[in-house]
Design a protein around this nucleic acid. Structure first.
Length: 411
RNA sequence: CGGAGUGUAGUAUAGUGGUAGUAUAAAUGCUUUGGGAGCAUUAGGUCCGAGUUCGAUUCUCGGCACUCCGACCA
């Protein structure tokens, strides 16, 4: 949590990048401290100081450390979920004996994040390389996962950095290779934060509330009994409990909710829709008589009547369907809203209408800045998939360019 | 830090130089239950300080707090 202030200052770009947003403890134990302690904005420095003590030989490599930790970044303008002053994140750090291995590992972690976003959170992604100005402070290269929100703005979902030897040189993280020569390790760091929860809400939410993909929803099914009289109440409740026990047996206690509150059915609907529970099962006197249930899916509101014998199969199928459907809808939205442009007017028009724009850029920071000043769009990344190099002209400067980057307004 | 704005009940809001209103939430009772129930009753409020005024929630000034836009950014 507390990092000696001078640790942060060792890596030139790192200190420059983080200085404006660190909070420093200057007072402790009733006295002013000789040296300030930074509330960690990220843990590279303190972890690599330790790495230098742990790593001696090539036999100590590769080394991987992962932690979940709260970090503090004193941003000028916080934003709920997306940029809070304090946030919980997962950060990982590695040390390798070769540059190739480090770069490969940075890409491997990027792939882990991509798979998590797409397969678990049902959020489509664009993987790519950050521009020089957008890369992590102290990194050689920053790979990122970019995602598109429903309003067309981009959200950086996760990043993975190839740190080269930038930190190992200043923290003296050295090892003796198999030739007996001493050299600095090659490192990576990577992270994913609670920001992704904000992304999840913004990608899948609708006017009724959040929609959770089944794979990440803690509650899979909510059972809603409804009744008219004391007589039917008992019958319906008994049936509901029976069903509840059966589903708990399959999915576990915390995955199934029985909402037997004595409130109107509409209130229960709104309550659980707002919370994004994938499936609800309605049970009333009619259903008890027919030995069937009404299943309603959160994403499409489609209803179906299912007999007891088919129930678990149908739930299983529906959970799967919802997971796929959420991804496909988001995927289509993303594809429909990424456009290739050649001219500046086209660029401006598409950025204005909330698109991701793919265009040639001369990779000049000055051009990047001008584009940002004029349109609020930033370079999101050089997509790994479309990084074929051809001759082209920069969409802004008209100068020669060889790569197409994605630009968008972002959170 | 620069620009703009707002502070009225738990919450969201209206309005007025002269008794502060509505919705919702809360409490009690009755009724009701296949999409946020109804009726009745109850309780609850003008950010702080100074000024102008017979009288300020309203006007003026100062303070404080918050929101939005910009720079920053996982």
């Amino acid at each position: 949590m507390l990092i000696p202030e001078d640790f942060l200052k060792k890596e030139e770009d790192h200190v420059e990048g983080f200085s404006p947003e660190v909070a420093v403890v200057t007072y402790a134990g009733g006295e002013k401290l000789e040296k300030g302690l930074v509330l960690r904005p990220t843990s590279e420095t303190i972890i690599y100081d330790t790495f230098s003590k742990w790593i001696q030989s090539h036999r100590d490599l590769p080394l991987l450390i992962n932690q979940w930790a709260n970090v503090i970044r004193w941003e000028m303008r916080p934003r709920l979920f997306l940029r809070t002053t304090e946030f919980l994140w997962q950060e990982g750090h590695t040390a390798h004996s070769t540059e190739e291995e480090a770069d490969l590992f940075a890409k491997t972690m990027l792939e882990v994040y991509r798979a998590f976003a797409e397969d678990v959170m049902a959020i489509p992604t664009v993987s790519g390389l950050k521009s020089e100005s957008e890369k992590f402070a102290g990194a050689l290269k920053t790979y990122s996962i970019e995602t598109m929100m429903q309003d067309g703005k981009a959200l950086q979902f996760a990043t993975s950095h190839n740190l080269g030897q930038n930190f190992s040189k200043v923290f003296n993280v050295q090892f003796t290779n198999d030739n007996g020569e001493s050299s600095c390790v090659w490192q990576t760091s990577w992270g994913l934060s609670t920001r992704t929860i904000g992304g999840l809400i913004m990608v899948h939410g609708d006017d009724r509330g959040i929609i959770l993909p089944p794979k990440i929803s803690p509650i899979k099914v909510v059972i809603m009994p409804m009744w008219k009289s004391e007589k039917t109440k008992n019958v319906v409740l008994n049936k509901s409990k029976e069903l509840h026990d059966m589903l708990v047996n399959k999915y576990g206690n915390s995955s199934i909710i029985l909402d037997d509150r004595d409130v109107r059915i509409g209130q229960k609907h709104y309550h659980w829709e707002k919370r994004g529970v994938p499936i609800r099962i309605e049970i009333g006197p009619r259903d008890v008589d027919n030995n069937s249930f009404v299943l309603v899916r959160r994403d499409t509101s489609e209803k179906q009547t299912v007999e007891l014998s088919n129930l678990t199969n149908t739930i299983e199928h529906l959970l799967d369907e919802i997971q796929k459907n959420l991804y496909l809808i988001a995927k289509k939205r993303q594809e429909d809203n990424i456009v290739d442009v050649k001219t500046w007017p086209e660029f401006v028009e598409n950025i204005e209408s909330g698109k991701f724009v793919r265009a040639y850029w001369d990779e000049n920071p000055e051009t990047e800045k001008q584009i940002k000043d004029k349109t609020k769009a930033t370079v999101r990344c050089l997509p790994l998939k479309y990084s074929e190099t051809k001759e082209g002209t920069c969409v802004f400067s008209g100068r020669k360019a060889t790569k197409k980057f994605i630009f968008a307004r972002s959170y």
